[in-house]
Simulated assay, not measured.
Amino acid sequence: MSNPSSLPRLVLASGSAYRAELLRRLRLPFVAQAPDIDESALPGEAPEQTALRLAQAKAQHLAAQFPDSLIIGSDQVATLHGQRLSKPGAHAAALAQLQFMRGQTVQFHTALCLLDTRCAPAHVQAENITVTVRMRNLPDAELDAYLHLEQPYDCAGSAKNEGLGIALIEEIDNRDPSALTGLPLIALCSMLRARGMPFFGLDV
Rank of each mutant, 00 (worst) to 15 (best):
P29Y: 09
P47I: 04
L54W: 09
F199E: 04
C189F: 08
G163T: 02
I166D: 00
G196R: 08
E162H: 00
H61P: 02
P47V: 03
T50A: 03
T110P: 01
L98S: 04
G15R: 01
G44I: 04
P29T: 12
R53Y: 02
T181K: 07
Q97E: 12
L42H: 06
Y146H: 14
R193E: 10
T79I: 14
A20V: 10
E39I: 01
R19H: 07
R9I: 03
Y146D: 07
P177W: 11
D144G: 08
L10Q: 04
Y153G: 07
Q33P: 03
H109T: 03
R9E: 12
N174F: 02
Y153I: 08
H61V: 03
G201F: 09
C119R: 14
N128I: 13
A93E: 15
R118A: 13
Q60R: 13
G201S: 08
L95V: 06
H123K: 10
L62N: 09
E170R: 13
I166Q: 10
S5F: 11
C113L: 07
G15V: 02
R175T: 14
C119I: 14
M191I: 02
E150P: 07
Q65Y: 03
A141S: 12
I172A: 03
I72F: 05
T50S: 05
A111V: 02
Q99S: 15
A13G: 11
L115A: 09
M135N: 00
D173I: 12
Q83V: 14
R102Y: 05
K87P: 12
V124R: 13
P139S: 11
V133F: 00
E150Q: 11
R25H: 12
S69A: 12
D38S: 00
H81A: 15
L143T: 11
D68G: 02
Q97T: 14
V133A: 05
V133H: 00
V124I: 15
Q125T: 10
E48P: 05
A55V: 09
A63M: 13
G196V: 09
N161T: 14
Q104M: 03
A17Y: 00
A120S: 15
L114S: 06
A156P: 09
A92G: 05
E162L: 03
A94F: 11
I186G: 02
N161E: 11
G15P: 02
A17W: 05
L202K: 13
P4G: 09
P88Q: 08
G89D: 05
